[in-house]
Structures are given as C-alpha cells and as structure tokens.
C-alpha cells in the first residue's frame, strides 16, 4: 500500500510543527523518519495514523483520502513509543483486541480469533507469554507484543513511533535486526520514527531526514550519508568536522590560509566546510591545505582518533580526526591535513 502526504501544515499555537511537508511512500517500503526531537516526525506519523489532524494538506493511503476517516477506520497499525499495552488484559487478549472490537457483521468466530492470535504470537516468537500481563514482560517483549497487536488487524500500513527508544542498548540492537527480517517476511508498508541515525541507516531502506517541521532530504541510507543535501543533514548524520570558511570566486580560504580544494560551485561568501572525520588525508607537515599539532591520540579497534589543533585561521581551532592504525600518530607531532571528500554549504546565520 502506498502513502502520500501533500502540503501538510500543523501548528501548535505559533509553533509550526509541520511546515508544508510532502512525502510519498512506495509499496512495501520500510521508511525511517529521522530527526532531532521537535522536528515534527512524530506529529507527521500521528497525522498519518489519524491520531492528529493537520491544519492544511492531504493524506492519501492507497490513493484514497484518509483525513475523512478517524483512526479507527483507517486500518493502520500503530505501535506506540511506550507500547500502550492494555494493562488489565493478558498478552493474548491484547493481541485479540482488534479482532474482538470488529463490527458484529465481519467479526470472526472465537476459534478463528484464537488461531489468528496464536499465529501472531508465533510470528513474534512469544507464544509462551500468552497468559502473562504486560507488567510481567520485559521491555523488548512488550515491544514485540505491541507489534503483534498492531498486525492483528491486518493493517494496510504499519507505523512505529520510536520503536526502540525505550529499550536498553543490547535489546535495541537485537530488535533492529528482528524488525528488518520481520519486514522482509510480511512486507507491509512501514514507517518508523527515530532520532537515532544509526538505527535509521541500519534498518530502513528509505530515510527521510526532518528538521524544524521540514523535510531536509529523502534518500537511501547510502544517499543521505554520502551525499547530504543540506548542512543540517551533514551535521546530523555521521560525525563531521565543520570549519568556517570563506568562498571567493571558486577558491576557499580558512581565515588567511587558502585551502587547496575546489569550491564545487558553492556561492561566494561565508560558508561551512563539512568533512567526515575519516575523510582527512594525513601527510607530513607542509604537504596539505591544513596544518596542525597533534594534541592527543586515542586508539581503539582499527582506528586512532586524534585531537589536532589547527594553525592559521582565527583563534584556536581543535578538530578530531580518525586515522587508520597503519600510520602511528604521536602527540606533539605536526601534520598536514587534506580533505578527501567534503561538502561546502553557505553559512546560514
């Protein structure tokens, strides 16, 4: 099933939670809405689910207007951040709920409902918990039950609000893989909201990066990581070195030091140079655009992370770079740095 969101505007008082948002989600996709808190991602998810209404715009599910229907008529599976399991019902009854509240005319008989619930509990591998109450489950188990409950109504689309947000790091990792494999099994069009870039890149096949109620970029995980469309995306996804530079007629300068890199069509004026930590080429002093003294080196795994105080430019600039272990860095050593891959964005303020 496809989802189409057009020109959605949602205001809370003077604050624009969603500012003219457009989004298309293709059939069978697993899409991540990624952004910092307050970026509007949860609001967008709730609007698609019918738990909130926009001030303007359109939502179409499978081409059909959704805003005319309430949440109960949209056949949308929603997994809440804190699971919202019914605490007075057993796990079994929680999963069965959506089937039991169907209108009498279409409601399945008890045996069919039982079989269906059993099937779903098997799917999430928790059939042995059927008679427990939510308070007796671990966080990861609650999350899976919430998912089984949402799937019980055979939703046209599945929406998950910070599905791993309330879990500890280890469980989170396991559940990520599990969700991805579950998705490839049931293949229902899904959107999940997260503020964790690693989660988005690892689980989703499409990532939508949001900030301040606007969509900054839509793309595959590789796309948004390698070709960030805006300064925000570059800064938000992956760790970046950001240097204030001046672009003038195709050349780039850091303070009074010209950098030996192309402006790549960036407009003249105050700009920001974004470089990934591992995209700095290290060489002996005097061979690169930038030069600095290594202040401190830590080694872990295959990389060493060095704090480098840049010379030139205004004031003291200290950056962190990642270098492979094959070239040992020493504290106090003077090195030169040359950006291998970089992006230049106009300084916004």
């Amino acid at each position: 099933m496809t989802i189409e969101v057009k020109n959605i505007v949602k205001k809370f008082g003077a604050f624009a939670a969603l500012d003219n948002v457009d989004l298309k989600v293709g059939k069978g996709e697993l899409l991540a809405l990624l952004g910092p808190s307050g970026s509007g991602k949860t609001t967008l998810l709730r609007i698609i689910a019918g738990l909130d209404w926009p001030d303007a715009g359109e939502v179409r599910i499978d081409g059909e207007d959704a805003l005319g229907h309430g949440a109960s008529e949209r056949h949308v599976g929603f997994v809440f951040q804190h699971y919202a399991l019914f605490r007075h019902m057993t796990v079994f009854e929680n999963v069965a709920f959506g089937l039991r509240v169907q209108p009498r005319a279409v409601r399945k008989d008890e045996a069919t409902i039982r079989a269906r619930v059993k099937e779903l509990l098997d799917l999430v591998q928790l059939d042995w918990l059927a008679n427990r109450y939510p308070s007796q489950l671990s966080g990861g188990q609650r999350q899976r039950i919430a998912l089984a409950r949402a799937l019980a109504i055979e939703p046209r689309i599945l929406l998950l609000d910070e599905p791993f947000g309330a879990l500890d790091a280890k469980v989170r990792k396991e559940l990520r893989q599990w969700l991805r494999s579950l998705h490839s099994e049931i293949h229902v069009t899904s959107i999940f909201v997260t503020h964790d870039q690693e989660e988005a890149l690892e689980v989703a096949n499409q990532v939508v990066v949001m900030d301040k109620g606007r969509i900054e970029q839509i793309g595959t995980p590789g796309d948004v990581y390698d070709n960030p469309a805006t300064a925000f995306v570059h800064g938000f996804i992956g760790e970046s070195i950001v240097l204030p530079v001046e672009v003038a007629g195709g050349s780039v300068r850091l303070g009074d030091r010209p950098l030996n890199i192309a402006a790549d069509g960036a407009a003249s004026g105050a700009s920001k140079l974004f470089v990934r930590r591992h995209d700095m080429q290290i060489g002996p002093a005097g061979t690169g655009s930038l030069e600095g003294a290594v202040r401190h080196v830590r080694s872990f795994g295959p990389i060493q992370r060095a704090e480098v105080a840049l010379s030139g430019g205004e004031g003291k600039m200290v950056i962190e770079i990642d270098a492979p272990r094959d070239r040992e860095l020493q504290a106090g050593e003077i090195i030169s740095l040359q950006p291998r891959r970089y992006r230049i964005f106009a300084a916004q303020d």
């Binding site: 738990l51 209404w53 303007a56 359109e58 805003l67 005319g68 949440a71």
Partner: peptide, 13 residues
C-alpha cells in the same frame, strides 16, 4: 476540507 478537519481529536466524544 482541511479547515473542517483541523479541530478533530484522536479520541471521540
């Protein structure tokens, strides 16, 4: 249409 739906809430009643 959009203004008509603007005031709806998630829970009924």
């Amino acid at each position: 249409m959009s203004t008509a739906v603007a005031r709806r809430t998630s829970l009924p009643g």
